[in-house]
Structures are given as C-alpha cells and as structure tokens.
Amino acid sequence: MNHQLLLSLISGVFIAGAAAYLGTLMLSRKMAVVAGPLGHLALPGAALALVYGFSLSVGAFPFIVLGIVVIWLLEIRTKLPMEALTAIVFATGVGTAFLFLPINKAEAALIGDIAQVSTGQTVAAVVLGVAVLLAVRRSYAQILLIGIHEDLAKTEGVNVRLFNFIYLAAIAVIVALGVDLVGGLMTAALVAIPAAAARNVSRTLGQYGMAAGAFGALSAVAGILAAAPTRLPAGPLVIIAGAGIFGVTLFWSRA
C-alpha cells in the first residue's frame, strides 16, 4: 500500500468514525442537518486556504469556531432553536465565500481533498478525532439529558451552557476535519448517515455509538479505496458508501 493512500485511510477512518459517533448525539437532538450549514460556513475559510495555499481544515476551522460562538451566544440571547440560528449564520458564510472563492479551484473546497492529505494533517486528524471521541463520550449523558429536557438537566446539576459549548466545539472540530474528507457541501452526511444506519440496527445506547463509529470508518475506507480504480473523487464516494450501508441496514430496521 502506498504511503499517500495509507495517510488518506488513517485520516478518513478517524474523521469519519468520530463524526459518526458525534452524529448519534446530533441525531438524538434532531440536529444532524446542522453540520451541513456549518460545512458551508467553512467555505470562506476554504476559499482563503485555496487562495493562499494552506490546508482546507486550517482555513475552515476559525470560521466554523466563529460561527459556533455566534450561534451559542445568539441561542443564549434569543432562545431561538439552534437549527434556525445555524441557518442564519450559514447563509452569511456561503454568501461571503462566493465573494472570494476562486471558482476554478473550488472543487477541493466543495467535495474534499483527502487523497492529497499530508502527514501533518493525518496526525492532526488522529489527535483531534480521538479528542472529540473522548470529549463526547465523557459528556454523552449530560448532552443527551439536556436534549431530553433542559430544566431536568439543570436540576440534575448539569452545567447546560458548558455542555452545550463542548457539544458545539466538538461539532466545529468535526466539521473542519470533514471539509478535508468530503468538502464543505457534504459534511452533514458524515454525521447523519452512519448514525442513522446505526439507529436502524441498535437496541441500546452502547450499540448505537459503536455501530455508528464502525459504519463511519467503514464508509471512509470503502470510499477512499474505491477512488483510485474508479478515478473518481474520494469525498463523494465516502458519502455513497455510507448511503449503501444505510440501505443495507434498512433490512434490520426496527421502526
């Protein structure tokens, strides 16, 4: 196996696995589609990265963090639903991006560039992927409880603002990493599809998280391995592989 392919696979597995695990929480809180707008929010940063020649994730991250902080503050201030606030902020991101995005170089920003990932980016994907997994695992009960009923979580002593921030920060990291893997247009699929597939086959929370992570990693491996022989970009193939897994799980669906 060549070195570049190995780097792509390692990055893909850690990004997609962590995204899918986080996706189980986002699906539970009916926020899976929020990753899509946030991915779009990454586009101004991706545009800058393309113009000045640095990593898409590095370019995307500050914009996503800025967007998340604005959403977090607006949520506290207005109590509007998070998905509505995300839609407002993301539209601003897309509008800004298309002012600066060099259209002739836009492909990488839109559908990802995992086939060209560097050693440094791979290390960052592993470290940040593991950090997100650990942070989500430690906060899972609290974040789920907030989703079930915020007042209930407060009476249980959960610091709602802190855990909402941890949750949003995890989303920001995953979306920024996801821009490298599948581009700014399709990040929602990284969190939504494997989690939805896992929902079809799980009876317990434990199975749900494990299955989502496994399905995410599997779709990344399948998509990246399929890219070379088909001469197609890996990002869309990762998404299609995830959709294929979802299709298979429909046979086990409990609903």
Partner: peptide, 28 residues
C-alpha cells in the same frame, strides 16, 4: 430533590435507542 417536568414525553426517547437501564444511567 427529584423533578419530573411537564412535557417529558416518550417521543424524544423513541428517537434514541436507549434501554430503561441506560435511561436511569443518564442520572448515574
């Protein structure tokens, strides 16, 4: 103090594959 708020309904829980035991586990 234990608290059972208004509107804590089954629909949310139905969206999550959580067993009764795991639901109790959310409160440790």
């Amino acid at each position: 103090i234990g608290y059972l708020p208004q509107g804590l309904n089954q629909m949310f829980v139905r969206d999550v594959p959580v067993t009764v035991g795991e639901f109790f586990g959310l409160r440790r």
